[in-house]
Simulated assay, not measured.
Amino acid sequence: MAASKNLVKNSDFRQGLAPWKGSQIRVVSNPLIKGDSALLMKALSGDAIVSQRQPFLPQTNMAYYLYFRVFNATPRQGDASLQAVVAYQDANGNNLRITPLLLEIPSTNTPKYLNYYTIVPPPPKTTRKILVVFVLKSGLILLDTIRLLARPVGS
């Protein structure tokens, strides 16, 4: 099967923040990979939020997979609470279907990224936009390498 095109733009933050938007976020040098960038999210005084909306036309018999990696940089070996959401929207931006993923990101003895993914069911036929949102409820993380890829149903 050929690799599908990533549906989110600037998924590795190497071109700065745009088209991502949010609060309590900033692009930083990746402390684990020289010459790389990552998104720092700090939920120390309220939620940190980052999102991106893209035009979208559903493909028949496709499901979508959201892949991303997280480095928990919370002080004192604390856990981080992260929500990842993919929402299918109509042309007016109304949510048609939402797929949430709730995570407790553990601290690790050795600094490293942890990889995550979720399967997003096929979209309604009236879907015209796709929204990807990450909400950090507690902690401090680096978010990187976000991919939203189409896969044939049943593969």
Rank of each mutant, 00 (worst) to 15 (best):
I105Y: 10
M41A: 13
P19F: 00
P124E: 12
L40K: 04
A80N: 08
L7V: 05
Q77A: 05
M41N: 09
N72D: 13
I49M: 12
G139V: 00
G154T: 10
M1Q: 05
A3D: 15
L101Y: 14
Q89L: 15
E104N: 13
W20I: 00
L143E: 04
L7H: 06
F134R: 10
L44M: 04
M62D: 13
K5A: 12
P121M: 07
Y116G: 09
M1C: 10
T110F: 02
S155E: 01
S45R: 14
K125V: 15
K21T: 14
S155I: 00
D47W: 01
K34P: 01
R76I: 05
V27H: 14
A38G: 01
R76Y: 14
P55Y: 02
D47Q: 10
A43L: 06
T110Y: 00
G139M: 02
L82Q: 00
R97Q: 13
K21P: 07
I130Q: 08
E104L: 15
K34S: 07
D79A: 15
R26H: 04
P58S: 05
L40R: 05
R14F: 05
N115R: 09
D12P: 02
P31D: 05
D36N: 06
P123H: 06
N115H: 12
I141E: 10
L114T: 11
T108Y: 08
L148V: 11
Y65D: 00
L149S: 03
Y88P: 00
L114M: 14
A80E: 12
N10L: 13
L136G: 07
Y65E: 01
Q89G: 09
L131Q: 11
L136P: 07
D47E: 10
T145E: 13
A43H: 04
R53E: 13
R147Q: 15
Q24H: 15
L140M: 11
A91V: 15
Y88T: 02
A84G: 03
N30T: 02
D90Y: 06
P19Y: 00
I98S: 09
V8Q: 03
R26L: 09
M1Y: 02
Q89Y: 05
D36G: 02
P123E: 07
S45Q: 10
V120K: 08
P123R: 07
L136W: 02
L39N: 09
I49P: 08
R26K: 06
L136V: 02
I146H: 08
V85Y: 01
S4P: 05
T127R: 12
P121E: 03
F13V: 04
L114W: 02
Q54H: 08
I130W: 01
A91H: 10
K137A: 13
Q52W: 15
N92M: 10
I130E: 06
Y113G: 08
L142E: 10
V86M: 09
I49E: 14
P58Q: 04
P100D: 08
L131P: 04
L101R: 12
I146L: 06
N61R: 10
N115Y: 15
R14C: 03
G93Q: 06
L40A: 07
D144P: 01
G16N: 02
T126E: 15
R128P: 07
T118K: 14
N72K: 10
P152M: 08
D90R: 10
V85S: 11
F13M: 06
Q54W: 07
V85E: 12
Y67P: 08
L148S: 14
P31I: 03
A73Y: 00
L66W: 12
N6H: 12
K112D: 09
V133N: 13
I25P: 03
L57P: 04
L32Y: 01
